[in-house]
Amino acid sequence: MEPLIRKAMPEDRPFIEEIARLTWGGEDYLARVFDEWLGDNFYVLELEGKVIGTAKLTILPDKVGWLEGLRVHPNYRGRGYGWKLHSFMLELGKRLAREGKVEALEFATYFLNRESISMAEKTGFHVKAEFFVLGTKTEGFELEEPERVEPTLEDLTLGIIPVGWRFVRRSGEAVKWIRENAELYDFNGFRFLVSKKGTTFTPFDVGLATLKAMLPAMAWVAEERGRKSFDVMLPSGVKPLLPGVKRLGLFLWDETEEPNVFIFRKKPS
């Protein structure tokens, strides 16, 4: 029986929850965003009545079609289903480009996700930017409450801004989107960003002293959201500071001295 790619439906939830439970050691966010994603270019791959894969295209500021949520159930990997979903989403991107809704396709992936990187390279994507993502636990800090503030264009001091695992370009349209999807905090004059539902933080000053000052406030936000650990996304330019960053209590998920998050981009043609 040929697999079918169709829009996700509410009754797909049990299948999505199973895929999420078996991905990233059960830490996958897919089940948490299921209701939010329904009806918004969220697709599943169905085989013999069972959903075994997912993929999503989110339109971000400046007409970027952001590809995310590409998953294949572990029992069905290695059979080309990831390629089938990826190809389907590229065709969707072309259609949205013809409709004037999308001007570029982008996605982010971890450096060890070799299958996604291979698909990107074979389908015309190029690396647009690189970041480091590091983790830590809240218990290592004396929690300090930051002040919630409204973001402005002046706050966005990075050309490419991580908002969780989505990345937007600095623009007025991005400011509006960030206000709807993220929260900006100020702690003693230092500002950092975090998506409304996540605990991956983006500091807008990445010096060692300022990062050290912000970490207790980030830990406070993570604890408020019921999490005992959190991540920090830093631009690739911090590479010379990595030894000092690690001394602050942050650790790379996997040992590497190179950026471990890649942002890929291509024109939808």
Rank of each mutant, 00 (worst) to 15 (best):
M1L: 02
M1A: 14
P3S: 02
L4Y: 11
I5Y: 08
I5R: 08
K7F: 09
A8Q: 05
M9Q: 14
M9V: 12
E11N: 04
P14W: 06
A20L: 02
G26C: 12
D28W: 05
Y29M: 06
Y29Q: 05
A31P: 02
R32D: 13
R32P: 02
Y43G: 09
E48L: 13
E48V: 13
T54F: 07
A55T: 12
A55M: 14
I59E: 15
E68P: 09
L70K: 05
R71N: 14
Y81K: 11
G82Y: 06
K84E: 15
L85E: 06
G93P: 11
K94N: 10
K94C: 10
R95Q: 15
L96A: 06
R98V: 10
K101C: 06
V102R: 04
A108D: 05
A108E: 07
T109K: 03
I117E: 15
I117D: 06
A120P: 05
K128E: 13
A129D: 14
E130P: 00
F131M: 09
F131D: 00
V133S: 08
T136F: 01
K137D: 11
L143Q: 00
P146T: 02
R148E: 14
L153G: 09
L153M: 09
D155V: 02
D155R: 04
T157F: 04
T157N: 01
L158C: 03
G159L: 10
V163I: 15
F167P: 00
R170S: 12
R170D: 10
R170V: 06
E173R: 09
W177I: 03
N181K: 14
L184P: 00
Y185M: 02
D186G: 00
L193Y: 03
K196G: 13
K196V: 08
G198P: 11
T199Q: 08
F201H: 05
T202S: 00
P203W: 01
F204C: 03
D205I: 07
G207I: 08
L208E: 01
A213H: 03
P216F: 07
W220Y: 15
V221E: 03
A222V: 10
E224M: 15
G226W: 11
R227M: 13
S229N: 10
V232A: 00
M233Q: 11
P235K: 03
G237Q: 11
G237S: 12
K239F: 10
L241W: 10
L242P: 02
P243G: 08
V245K: 04
K246H: 04
L248M: 10
L252R: 07
D254A: 14
E258D: 11
E258R: 13
E258N: 12
E258A: 13
N260P: 05
F262P: 04
